[in-house]
Design a binder for these strands. Structure first.
Length: 158
DNA sequence: CGGGTTTGACCAGCGC
DNA sequence: GCGCTGGTCAAACCCG
């Protein structure tokens, strides 16, 4: 399966790589973080919570989470792609006057994350970065998905 | 009442 | 060694 394309096959919709000419930039994580379901006890509040996994994984496979950035032109940063997203944080970037929003997929076993950042240079441009792959079908009608493509304009340089 | 959103605080990694 | 940034989570609040 092509895990490189998140929207490769959505609800039976086969979308060619490029997303209607959308520029998909593949970003690899230099730090090689193995987040996901790994024991990130120290990552969060580990003072009151005792992790059950005391044994550390010495041979932790370096699973790099596929990250894909999509540049879209939209007035709102809330691009509903058909999945349910829950905002779990908001931080301001130095290069950007606008804060970055962190979204997470509210699904069991689906640890897909999404980040939305707006360019300070052009607030009309919204960069949506998808991290991970959905392992479940969309809970929204397919028509909506097409509607998304219709409502959002792809920022493609002529 | 439930789900989702908000803000603040905390931690780890990296740079200098 | 210290400081900074980025990233994440937790509790509280708000809305439907």
């Amino acid at each position: 399966m092509e895990s490189s394309n998140v929207f490769g096959n959505v609800h039976g919709h086969s979308i060619p790589n490029g997303f209607l000419g959308l520029k998909s930039t593949e970003i690899h994580v230099p730090t090689g973080q193995e987040v996901e379901n790994s024991s990130r006890s120290s990552g969060g509040f580990g003072r009151s919570e005792n992790e059950e996994k005391s044994c550390k994984k010495k041979y932790e496979k370096k699973i790099r989470k596929p990250r894909y950035a999509f540049q879209t032109r939209s007035q709102v940063d809330i691009l509903d792609d058909g999945y349910r997203w829950r905002k779990y944080g908001q931080k301001a970037v130095k290069n950007n006057k606008f804060p970055r929003s962190y979204y997470r997929c509210t699904h069991q076993g689906c640890n897909v994350k999404k980040q939305v950042q707006r360019l300070s240079k052009d607030e009309s441009i919204v960069v949506t970065t998808y991290e991970g792959v959905h392992t479940h079908p969309i809970e929204k009608p397919t028509d909506n998905f097409e509607h998304i493509l219709n409502q959002m304009q792809i920022y493609a340089p002529l």
